[in-house]
Design a protein around this nucleic acid. Structure first.
Length: 631
RNA sequence: GCCGGUGUAGCUCAGUGGUAGAGCGCACGACUCAUAAUCGUGCUGUCCGGAGUUCGACUCUCCGCACCGGCACCA
């Protein structure tokens, strides 16, 4: 028996889980379940990453200690996984003792490898990012490009990991293991990064308090990624060299969304090399979800309504849609209308109706499942197709093509529908043809049982419902033709996927009223005085002209009329605003910001905008006189 | 701007140097066991644009456009 260890990332617990988390976890769950029915010894990990300054900060905003905050949030994740039928074997929290013991051992091993060194470090630091900004990334204002906050000049002793040393070994590993990173496009990107050189990376933060102290110097706290990545071994009981650890490490699959492949495919393997531990076999990156063509965005209120869609179509339909519709690895556009189509066409019509019609015929004509006494036309074809379906399915699962995997199963479902049609089984109730009828119905039910086994990794609840209606009391996971016993009492129940007709229920939509933004009384510790606020000179200006800055995708060069003067301002909004729509627009300008030169273009001020992943310009509600002060 | 990818039926996508494919949707027909389900048949395409190689290109080469991703950039 082979073993199979699969992980999702441990999700950063500074907010509630969303559809992106669900997507990764459902895909991992499908793989885990698939390997279980194949007889592998499976261990499936998911969890939460609970340390770091961001969580500390979010907790503080809510008026909680970080530990209390995490204790509140972790169950929200586990409850979602229960609802989605996720079959994880462990839910790891980085605040757990198990993890802390493991980290202690791992970091000690890393330290003893000689590839950790202490170096004084001073430089510009962004607290929310928890990182220093190297000289080349600095600009005149010394502001963090992500958080727009002033960088602090921080002097601290930090520990570094000699990542640079592992460049060659990593490159070698990539070339020896072409499947190490999947899909290939990600692999190529990482190869580029590797070839262009690695820098040593700092692994500790002395300015952060919420985390795990370095075992060899407890005044320093481990950097969140250094704390988080080893969870994949600590969860197995690496600290005590437990049986799980010896059985399951190295992992077969680390599954994740594409934005964190670097940490997993470069930093983590290098750390393992240093600690002299085996590397995971495959790093699998999938794409992002969009919603009706738009990027998900908290600020713009674009999100996937998991609760609503699950309530309407059921958990399995949600799982089915995510896995069937998108080619893993590529970004996928989540469209409720497509979910609806998939539901009716695939689940209700093809599968649900097939089960229902076959059970109806058995019920009406036999006491239990009839014996297949009378072979005939098409029987062998169906039987053989069951076998080839299994083989094709396996190939698709090996390449993480869940969409093709499900399509393959559906080809078989359609074949069975055709079988029922071709044999016209409902016409065979006469005494002389009844044995043939029984045989066809047996084959059809066996095909459905077989299908339920193949489907169980993807839509486990449905698989069980199918077998229950067929009359099996315990779930049969054997994908071998002929396993279905005769004489079982079938129990044709309600259709497993009742059609959902959109027209009939016109109006149950408006329930999705905007969730009221959680009012979290900011217990601001970093308040500024009114005097400090007054230093800001904000004024209303009007955009006279706008053009793209040469060689920069995000930058626009704006000429702004402030009434008394005109200013040239560079703004990083090109991805969200076309130059010509800006002309004539009133905007708020920070007038007394020191000038800067960005990509050879001078900027005298800054335009206010809201948002992080998407950007919306701030503008007076009605036009006001140019130069009006904002306060 | 640099590097990489993609661009095929209304939608999601597969595909090959030699007359264009699947599923969904749509139209028509068959059937009536079944959830207005199933089965069959059919329809639509300048296979992104242009040039080139070739007897012949959707498939190869070059140029361009659009979109996506990585890097740079975000005052």
């Amino acid at each position: 028996m082979s073993t199979f260890y699969i992980t999702t990332p441990i999700y950063y617990a500074n907010g509630e889980p969303h559809a992106g988390h669900a997507y990764t976890t459902i895909a991992a769950d499908a793989l885990a379940r698939y390997h279980r029915i194949k007889g592998d010894d499976v261990f499936f990990l998911t969890g939460v990453d609970e340390h770091g300054a961001n969580i500390d900060k979010t907790a503080e905003k809510e008026g909680l200690t970080p530990q209390t905050f995490c204790d509140k949030l972790a169950p929200i994740f586990t409850q979602l996984w229960e609802r989605l039928n996720i079959s994880n074997d462990i839910f790891l929290r980085t605040t757990s003792d198990l993890h802390k013991r493991g980290i202690k051992k791992f970091l000690t091993a890393l330290y003893e490898s000689g590839d950790v060194y202490k170096a004084p470090y001073e430089g510009y630091y962004c607290r929310p990012c928890e990182r220093f900004f190297p000289e080349k990334e600095l600009t005149d204002e010394k502001i963090c490009p992500i958080h727009k906050l002033p960088l602090e000049w921080v002097k601290e002793e930090n520990y570094f990991f000699r990542l640079s040393k592992y460049q060659d070994r990593l490159l070698q590993h990539y070339s020896d293991n072409p499947d190490f990173v999947h899909p290939e496009s990600r692999r190529n990107e990482l190869l580029n990064v590797l070839e262009s050189g690695l820098e040593d990376t700092s692994i500790s933060r002395s300015s952060v308090s919420w985390g795990i102290p370095l075992p060899f110097d407890p005044k320093h706290i481990a950097y969140v990624w250094i704390d988080a990545l080893p969870n994949y071994i600590t969860a197995l009981g690496y600290d005590a060299d437990s049986e799980n650890y010896r059985t399951f490490w190295p992992a077969n699959v680390h599954m994740m969304a594409k934005e964190i492949t670097r940490f997993h495919a470069i930093l983590w393997p290098a750390m393992l090399m240093a600690a002299d531990l085996p590397l995971p076999k495959q790093i699998i990156a999938h794409g992002w979800l969009t919603k009706d063509g738009e990027a998900l965005s908290k600020t713009r209120g674009i999100f996937i309504d998991m609760d609503g869609d699950i309530a309407k179509y059921g958990v399995d339909s949600f799982r089915y849609y995510l896995l069937r519709e998108f080619s893993f690895g590529n970004d996928g556009d989540y469209r409720p209308s497509r979910l609806h189509q998939r539901y009716n066409a695939d689940l209700a019509n093809d599968l649900g109706n097939l089960l229902n019609r076959v059970l109806g015929l058995v019920n009406k004509n036999f006491d239990g499942i009839p014996e297949p006494t009378t072979p005939g036309e098409f029987d062998d074809e169906v039987k053989e197709m069951a076998q080839t379906t299994t083989e094709k399915l396996d190939a698709h699962m090996k390449s993480f093509a869940f969409d093709s995997a499900l399509e393959t199963i559906w080809e078989f479902v359609r074949r069975v529908n055709r079988y029922v049609q071709q044999t016209e089984v409902w016409t065979l109730a006469k005494p002389e043809t009844k044995p043939r009828m029984g045989t066809i119905l047996y084959n059809s039910l066996e095909a459905l049982r077989y299908v339920s086994v193949l489907l169980s990794p993807f839509i486990p609840e449905t698989a069980e419902k199918i077998q229950k209606q067929i009359g099996l009391t315990e779930f049969d996971t054997v994908a071998e033709w002929g396993h279905l016993p005769v004489d079982l009492k079938v129990s044709r129940g309600e259709p497993i996927f009742p059609r959902v007709d959109l027209k009939k229920e016109k109006t149950p939509q408006p329930k999705e009223a905007e969730k009221p933004k959680k009012k979290t009384k900011a217990q601001e510790s970093n308040l500024i005085s009114f005097a400090e606020f007054q230093k800001l000179d904000l004024r209303v200006g009007s955009v006279i002209s706008a053009e793209q800055v040469q060689g920069a995708d995000r930058l626009l060069k704006l000429q702004v009329d402030l009434g008394t003067e005109k200013r040239q301002v560079v703004a990083g909004i090109a991805e969200h605003y076309k130059p010509d729509v800006l002309v004539g627009k009133q905007v708020i300008v920070v007038v007394n910001l020191e000038p800067a030169t960005i990509r050879n273009v001078e900027s005298h001020g800054m335009i206010l905008a809201a948002g992080d992943d998407s950007v919306v310009l701030v503008s007076p509600e009605t036009d006001v006189q140019l130069g009006t002060q904002v306060r």
